[in-house]
Nucleic acid binder design. Structure first.
Lengths: 126, 126
DNA sequence: TATATGTTATATATATAATATAACAAGTAT
DNA sequence: ATACTTGTTATATTATATATATAACATATA
């Protein structure tokens, strides 16, 4: 699992880490049971603070993507699921992004194709 | 054009305003040439500061969704378009959101259907 | 002339993001 | 036992982003 941090981005570092781990799970690069690098390890790898990494990990724990094992540290889990509440949030997140693309003149199919392309990269469920 | 601001949201007020105006354009509620309420008017309607509204308007101006007319104030325009740069940003924005849904167990079709539903509400181009 | 536009400038308050240190508890390996 | 690595907690500091408060200015309009 290789992470890339963009320090010029306006996306907070902890959000970049959090997103890339979720993407790793979607892509199948990160599987249930996989042990994440320790917060100190990741922090030193990127030259950032330990608390920044911990914030990302803790958010992922709250959302059900990671568990803390007293021996192994943070471990990939799959307790996150898509309840009605999440679906509502999903729509709220997608709406402005899709509206932006559409208002710039893109066709519905064009936009949907991009969504499909992204989804196609994700690992098929077994 | 009726805007709704959620003061408890962690989405900045200026972002909420900006997003809802773009959504208004996508929905066909806001059309090219429409005059927006003045920044002071909108600010007083919601009990917020004039600069918060101005920030939203100015960002929309930068992106090509609004123009400033010396007499009419901020006016809806359609200079925004989807260049390669925007498409790249679009993918970067969509990726983590779709990955999240997929990692929570949603099927590709399920996710695509939600995108379709949102897009279907947007006004067909003439 | 009074009024309504947007614009610019300053200052202030609050929250968020990120860092810096330090210390602690629990488990592991030597 | 000792040293080392986990995560955890606490405190403080810095920088940036968000939002507000006032004031003044230029331009156009009624």
């Amino acid at each position: 699992m290789l992470l890339k941090i963009e320090f010029e981005s306006d996306v907070p570092i902890y959000t970049q880490i959090k997103n890339q781990i979720i993407e790793g799970i979607a892509l199948g690069i990160l599987k249930e049971g996989d042990e994440m690098p320790s917060i100190r390890q990741l922090a030193s790898d990127f030259g950032i603070n330990l608390h920044t990494v911990k914030k990302a990990y803790d958010l992922l724990k709250d959302e059900g993507f990671l568990n803390v094992h007293r021996r192994k540290g943070y471990v990939v889990t799959k307790n996150a699921f898509a309840d009605d509440n999440f679906i509502e949030e999903l729509k709220k997140d997608l709406q402005p992004i899709l509206a932006n693309a559409y208002s710039r003149g893109m066709m519905q199919d064009e936009i949907l194709t991009i969504c499909e392309e992204i989804l196609r990269k994700f690992k098929n469920k077994e």
